[in-house]
Computed example of a mutant assay.
Amino acid sequence: MHAVPDKAHARFDAEARTYEYFVRLIPDPFGVNQSLYLDRAPNVGAMNTAAAYLIGSRDFTSFSKVKGGENHYICVCYEAGWHPIPGGLVFRIRANRFVRGMVRLVVGTLLSVGRGKLTPEEFGHILHTQSRIAASGAAVAKGLFLSRVEYPSELVAAEEPTGMPYFVPTS
């Protein structure tokens, strides 16, 4: 542990956050509360094509909870994509900020792409038209985890005494 400036704020001083959403493709009684189970594999290629539309500075009104109390819905998305893991998939999204409900709504709509209910181009259109009603429902909460928060290097030490990183400086 080390001292930080008195005005340092854990939420507002963060420069980037990474969320991960876990999907199981094989039954696992121990993963019931940590992931969403799908009984058939979605089209990961189509979902990653659609996820590419998220990269950059975008207005995420389409993927926000109605009346979320936000001043604006612009986020800068640095990374968004599906990755294979043992027994399933993980969706990883990294951005400077997230609006209320954004990740679960993005995942729910990307899963609609993976099931063939939407094309990647339709996903892009939903994002660009800023129409919340056009997006699919939110994915269940149990698969979503905040996995990383990045702060400026002047706010946090490089490593804990164990040598294990607990943050990522962004300088």
Score class of each variant (00 low, 15 high):
residue 94 R to T: 14
residue 122 E to G: 02
residue 50 A to N: 08
residue 79 E to Y: 11
residue 157 A to D: 15
residue 72 H to N: 11
residue 171 S to F: 15
residue 23 V to M: 00
residue 7 K to Q: 14
residue 110 L to T: 03
residue 143 G to M: 02
residue 2 H to N: 15
residue 170 T to I: 10
residue 2 H to A: 09
residue 167 F to N: 15
residue 160 E to M: 14
residue 137 G to A: 04
residue 132 R to I: 03
residue 152 P to N: 10
residue 46 A to T: 03
residue 44 V to T: 11
residue 132 R to F: 14
residue 83 H to A: 10
residue 14 A to H: 05
residue 130 Q to V: 07
residue 109 T to F: 00
residue 118 L to I: 03
residue 96 N to W: 12
residue 81 G to K: 03
residue 155 L to E: 06
residue 134 A to T: 13
residue 167 F to G: 13
residue 45 G to F: 07
residue 105 L to W: 05
residue 99 V to I: 13
residue 111 L to P: 00
residue 82 W to K: 03
residue 25 L to P: 01
residue 3 A to W: 07
residue 65 K to A: 07
residue 2 H to Y: 15
residue 49 T to P: 06
residue 149 V to Q: 01
residue 165 P to Q: 03
residue 165 P to H: 02
residue 95 A to M: 01
residue 24 R to Y: 06
residue 169 P to N: 11
residue 93 I to E: 07
residue 90 V to S: 08
residue 84 P to M: 09
residue 73 Y to L: 08
residue 13 D to R: 00
residue 161 P to N: 00
residue 30 F to L: 13
residue 53 Y to N: 15
residue 5 P to K: 15
residue 16 A to I: 02
residue 65 K to G: 02
residue 102 M to G: 02
residue 124 G to F: 12
residue 157 A to N: 05
residue 40 R to F: 15
residue 162 T to D: 02
residue 6 D to C: 09
residue 121 E to D: 11
residue 68 G to V: 07
residue 16 A to S: 12
residue 90 V to A: 08
residue 12 F to R: 11
residue 110 L to E: 09
residue 98 F to D: 03
residue 145 F to I: 06
residue 44 V to F: 02
residue 43 N to R: 09
residue 156 V to S: 04
residue 157 A to L: 13
residue 116 G to Y: 10
residue 70 E to D: 05
residue 53 Y to L: 01
residue 37 Y to R: 14
residue 108 G to M: 03
residue 121 E to R: 10
residue 74 I to V: 13
residue 18 T to R: 05
residue 88 G to L: 02
residue 82 W to A: 03
residue 101 G to C: 09
residue 47 M to A: 01
residue 62 S to L: 04
residue 148 R to K: 15
residue 110 L to A: 06
residue 103 V to T: 09
residue 170 T to H: 06
residue 61 T to C: 00
residue 70 E to A: 10
residue 90 V to C: 15
residue 15 E to T: 14
residue 35 S to A: 03
residue 7 K to P: 06
residue 25 L to R: 01
residue 135 A to I: 05
residue 77 C to A: 09
residue 81 G to H: 05
residue 46 A to M: 08
residue 125 H to W: 14
residue 117 K to G: 11
residue 49 T to W: 06
residue 63 F to K: 00
residue 135 A to K: 06
residue 35 S to L: 00
residue 27 P to W: 01
residue 58 R to H: 10
residue 94 R to G: 04
residue 99 V to M: 07
residue 76 V to Q: 14
residue 109 T to K: 04
residue 18 T to G: 07
residue 93 I to H: 07
